[in-house]
Design a binder for these strands. Structure first.
Lengths: 215, 215
DNA sequence: CCGAATCCTGGTAGATACTG
DNA sequence: CAGTATCTACCAGGATTCGG
């Protein structure tokens, strides 16, 4: 199972030997949101063949990026979780995602929008320099899933699911208001006027949201 | 030639579709050092099959990351050069390279150390926060090749080849003093005492070099 | 000699069925 | 639920050949 090598003494080559194979980085991306079961990963990566998923998880474990852990008794389940080493890939994934997002306007036909892909887009579009001194918790409800964003003193924590005490809830009603806000093609006033979002909390926080998450 | 898709509306997925195939990122890494001919790329990537190189260059061109240009008359040659878009990948490659460099202590048997891989290691180990207000030009002679490093007001420019007016020349005589300096396993005093390097210029600049380039 | 194209082989990915 | 098995199709590796 020795992954194919590049024959170069180079950090980039080493990185590509470990996570350069097809699907590996997307698996890491999904695990960035916390421990996941095999089936969770399948759901988040609808196009991955199951043998490849299984194979990649094995490789990630061997390379020390992830651990496999059986949950205690009642939950007959196995969870995969990033190690600290695996989590350290985050900046690289963000940099790659930011570069790739440049050609990301409309989904291509058949393309899935998963909770994990949206979580990733928050990570890549986050601008720490706009967050100075800000503390705010956003809960973004996208219909099929909800994501919460905790901005605390320049740092961002993204998690999938609702938050018990958000400062602002942004709920998508129709269309793609969140994407439009983040790309700048519509303003907060636009989306509120057209009724594509419903917010709960101080409306001024929606302006802050746009400044914080912007491509 | 549509590269295989991931079926996800995600910047990271898009990035991997464009440069995720085997060898692509290493080709971009090499092109980061300026225009290169097909044969130059082959030399820098000794293990790449020629059809793959040719194929990848075509893909990079189609994706808008690189251009192919025939040199004017006497130089019967074709050069490949990154576009601005391709060059924008640099931060992502650096982040990946920095992550991969963690497991990079000794070259594995048969692994090549190329000018481009060393240039990359300078990019990844560069610490802008240690460069504040610094202006210095280093020329590092490694035997088979020479690399020059221009630090100007926090920014780093790496190029392959000598520099007409370096502030400090670091010449490797034997062993791996540069790697040892950058990893911290030896100090400037150590390598000067053992005679594994010869320097030309203010010795204090060697301390500065170590602070600037450090893993 | 440079810059590939071609051909063949073997390995990896994709799709789907199946199992402890 | 968490994978394994199997088959096919495609892509990479390696050597050789070809045209400018």
């Amino acid at each position: 199972m020795a992954t194919r090598e590049y024959g170069q003494f180079c950090g980039l080559a080493r990185a590509m030997e470990m996570v350069g194979e097809r699907w590996s980085m997307l698996i890491v991306r999904d695990l960035l949101n916390g421990p996941r079961r095999y089936t969770d990963l399948r759901r988040g990566l609808p196009a991955i063949p199951t043998n490849i998923l299984s194979n990649r998880l094995k490789q990630l474990e061997e390379a020390g990026l992830a651990t496999r852990r059986a949950l205690p008794h009642p939950e007959r389940a196995v969870v995969y979780e990033l190690t600290d080493y695996g989590r350290d890939l985050e900046p690289a994934l963000i940099a790659l995602g930011r570069w790739g997002a440049r050609t990301l306007t409309e989904p291509r036909p058949g393309e899935a929008i998963t909770a994990e892909s949206v979580a990733m887009s928050f990570r890549t579009s986050y601008r720490p320099e706009a967050a100075y001194g800000t503390t705010a918790i956003f809960e973004v409800r996208m219909g099929d899933f909800t994501i919460n964003l905790q901005v605390t003193g320049g740092a961002l924590a993204v998690a999938i699911g609702p938050h018990p005490a958000p400062d602002l809830v942004i709920e998508r009603l129709h269309g793609h208001p969140v994407r439009e806000l983040m790309s700048g093609s519509k303003t907060p006033a636009d989306v509120l006027a057209e009724g594509s979002v419903h917010i709960k909390g101080d409306p001024a926080l929606l302006d802050r949201f746009v400044r914080l998450f912007h491509f």
